[in-house]
């Protein structure tokens, strides 16, 4: 800090130093951005719906797409967060992926194998089946328009931003919980990898044009927090994810 040590710096040197510093600064900010992007990028693989044939729906011939997901009581079983369940092996999760990719203008049949237990919804509306073909889903082979709000384990709720540039898409399907008694009786689904036993829920909905949507679970499963919507519910990628509807 001693003034007497001042050295004259030539103009050229000064400009070079300023430009170097500018690049350095931009590089630092860029590196932070790149790291954040990498760290926070969707860690899961995408789950693609497979198209198999066409189906006649309301007089239109639509591609028939199929997609299957599981809902697991822990992340080890869901396999969507690495081999050992990732940073929170105890958290419930959808699997094997939480970013769903669906074809546009298609009749999508979704099968959910659900293995978790449950209690009561915060908002009973989500015990209704909404937005599917005929507003019903089949629960272990039985079609129904809703289940009891006290029998829910999770929900699959798909929604998006209202906008002129993409078609609205809203689907809500409640998933029935697995209770201890069920296990001895007629639980139709058994997960081959984990021996989890559960229910199978099948429903279909029709996609519009290409667009970006999200889905999340409306069942309060983030334990220990206010309204049970913290922890796993607030973390993203466990009980929530993206839905991309794509052309072609």
């Amino acid at each position: 800090m001693d003034i007497s040590t001042q050295t004259e710096v030539s103009g050229g040197k000064r400009i070079a130093s300023a430009i170097a510093f500018l690049f350095f600064g931009v590089a630092v900010v860029g590196a932070v951005g790149f790291t954040l992007h990498k760290v926070s990028a969707d860690p899961q693989a995408k789950m693609y719906a497979s198209v198999n044939g066409t189906i006649n729906y309301n007089g239109q011939n639509l591609k028939h797409a199929y997609i299957t997901e599981g809902v697991y009581p822990d992340s080890v079983a869901s396999k969507s967060h690495g081999p050992n369940g990732g940073s929170h092996p105890g958290w419930p999760s959808y699997g094997p992926a939480t970013h769903l990719v669906l074809p546009a203008h298609a009749y999508v049949t979704m099968t959910l194998h659900v293995y978790d237990s449950g209690e009561h919804l915060n908002t009973n509306y989500f015990a209704k089946v909404v937005g599917t073909v005929e507003n019903t889903a089949t629960f272990d082979g039985v079609a129904a328009a809703s289940i009891l709000p006290t029998d829910v384990q999770h929900t699959f709720t798909l929604h998006g931003l209202p906008t002129q540039t993409q078609d609205p898409l809203f689907v809500n399907v409640p998933l029935p919980r697995v209770v201890a008694d069920d296990k001895g009786n007629n639980i139709p689904t058994k997960d081959p990898g984990t021996n989890n036993q559960g229910h199978t829920v099948v429903f279909s909905f029709v996609t519009g044009g290409a667009g970006e949507y999200v889905w999340n679970c409306e069942y309060p499963c983030g334990d220990g927090t206010y309204a049970k919507f913290g922890a796993v519910m607030g973390a993203g990628g466990f009980m929530s994810g993206k839905v991309s509807v794509v052309n072609g």
């Binding site: 209202p162 609205p168 999340n216």
Partner: peptide, 19 residues
């Protein structure tokens, strides 16, 4: 359009619906 104008966590941005 119905929107949510108070930050409410993870999917605040997507808490919107048509009307």
């Amino acid at each position: 359009e119905v929107k949510c104008a108070e930050l409410c966590g993870l999917y605040h941005a997507y808490m919107e619906t048509n009307g």
